[in-house]
Design a protein around this nucleic acid. Structure first.
Lengths: 66, 66
DNA sequence: AGAGAATGTAATATATATATTGCGAATGTA
DNA sequence: TACATTCGCAATATATATATTACATTCTCT
């Protein structure tokens, strides 16, 4: 479950805690998603994408690397 | 959690059972996702999208209606 | 070097996605 | 009519996403 969340978050100079608060989860959840160890729910993916001004595809579709 | 899964599946003339088999879940899970009552995992969303030759955005991003 | 913020990570608890089984309704078709 | 296919829809069981709490590590700033 590789993704571009960490990259997009840092570009917007947000902390994990800030993003977590804005999408209504804990910092740990964001951390594990960024690490690629979680398989997050669609609802959470959408919330994260909107918060980071990205689409689902930009964050989660066929991510090559970072 | 509205989406375009049912529409895309029928366009490819697949049954719920076929799609379920190909993405490795049960027919019930597909049915509930199509009905919009589930909050599926990202991994499952990606599997469904690939099976239906769509992207995440096409199936799950800001779906207006069907 | 020290302090504070941001992050990594682990243990246990809880909520919920998904499986399993089964039945009923609608549809097509022989 | 009868049979098969597809789908809707329950009830219960299981797996796993997420919360909670806590501590360690890394980085930045003074």
């Amino acid at each position: 479950m590789k993704n571009n969340v960490k990259l997009a978050r840092i570009k917007r100079s947000m902390t994990q805690q800030e993003l977590a608060d804005r999408v209504g989860v804990t910092r740990q959840t964001i951390g594990l998603i960024e690490k690629g160890e979680y398989n997050p729910s669609l609802k959470l993916c959408v919330a994260i994408a909107k918060e980071l001004n990205k689409t689902l595809d930009e964050l989660f579709w066929e991510v090559e690397s970072d």
